[in-house]
Amino acid sequence: MLRRVLQPLWVLLALIFLIEAWLWDHLEPVVARVVAWIPLRAFKAWLAERVDALSPAMTLVVFIVPVIPLFPLKLVGLWLLAHEYWVSAVVILVLAKFLGVGVAAFIFDVTRPKLLQMAWFDKLYQWVMTIRARARAIVDPVKARIKAMMGAARGGWSSRLLRMVQHYRKRVREAR
């Protein structure tokens, strides 16, 4: 009984975790493109040289510190939410999220070898990778069922619904 009640919560948590992982995976190449576009490649090489000279503990500081300036940006987003500036708040919070994940991916790429030298960090990293695999195992069957339902519905009511929505959108545009 409890398992049945908690299953939607686990799926939701797994989805949130996978969205974070997806952002990480997809922002890393974007950051790489930005690095190629802006002269950050030289900065990355310079940073890698400096990190090689640091202890693993100091490398952790290098990993954490760049994300700290984004905290005030998130506070501004929360203030905007509290004062019902919904669009501005969402834009600020999404921007802070993308910047945070992008910067963290960039810095983690440089600092990963040193960070993984610390046993506790290596265990934490392996645990996160295990949780990610479990989250994917929870979400993948749900995604497959949704895709199967969408595939079955394509020829039926969904195409009629889509045509009806397109018809009404066209009428609204013509009325303007």
Rank of each mutant, 00 (worst) to 15 (best):
Val34Ala: 01
Val35Gly: 01
Val35Leu: 03
Pro39Phe: 01
Pro39Asp: 11
Leu40Thr: 06
Ala42Cys: 00
Ala45Trp: 00
Ala45Leu: 04
Val51Leu: 01
Ala53Gly: 07
Ala57Cys: 00
Leu60Gly: 15
Leu60Tyr: 09
Leu60Cys: 11
Leu60Ser: 10
Leu60Asn: 04
Val61Thr: 13
Phe63Asn: 14
Pro66Ala: 05
Val67Asn: 09
Leu70Cys: 03
Phe71Thr: 08
Phe71Val: 14
Phe71Arg: 07
Pro72Gly: 02
Leu73Gln: 03
Leu73Val: 12
Val76Met: 13
Val76Glu: 08
Val76Cys: 09
Gly77Pro: 05
Leu78Glu: 14
Leu78Ser: 13
Trp79Asn: 12
Leu80His: 04
Leu81Gln: 11
Leu81Ser: 10
Leu81Asp: 09
His83Trp: 14
His83Val: 11
His83Ile: 11
Glu84Tyr: 15
Tyr85Gly: 03
Trp86Met: 10
Ser88Met: 10
Val90Gln: 08
Ile92Leu: 04
Leu93Ser: 02
Ala96Leu: 03
Ala96Ile: 04
Ala96Thr: 06
Leu99Phe: 02
Leu99Pro: 03
Gly102Cys: 00
Gly102Pro: 05
Ala104Leu: 05
Ala104Lys: 06
Ala105Glu: 03
Ile107His: 02
Phe108Pro: 02
Asp109Met: 02
Asp109Glu: 07
Val110Gln: 01
Thr111Met: 06
Leu115Val: 06
Leu115Phe: 07
Leu115Glu: 02
Leu116Thr: 03
Met118Gly: 02
Met118Pro: 00
Ala119Tyr: 06
Ala119Val: 12
Trp120Tyr: 02
Trp120Leu: 13
Asp122Trp: 14
Asp122Ala: 15
Asp122Ser: 13
Lys123Met: 13
Leu124Gly: 15
Tyr125Thr: 08
Tyr125Gln: 06
Trp127Met: 14
Trp127Glu: 13
Met129Trp: 10
Thr130Ala: 15
Ile131His: 08
Ala133Ser: 12
Ala137Phe: 05
Ala137Met: 10
Ile138Phe: 05
Ile138Val: 15
Pro141Ile: 07
Ala144Tyr: 13
Lys147Ile: 12
Lys147Val: 12
Ala148Ile: 00
Gly151Asn: 13
Gly151Cys: 04
Ala152Phe: 12
Ala152Pro: 04
Ala152Gly: 15
Gly156Glu: 07
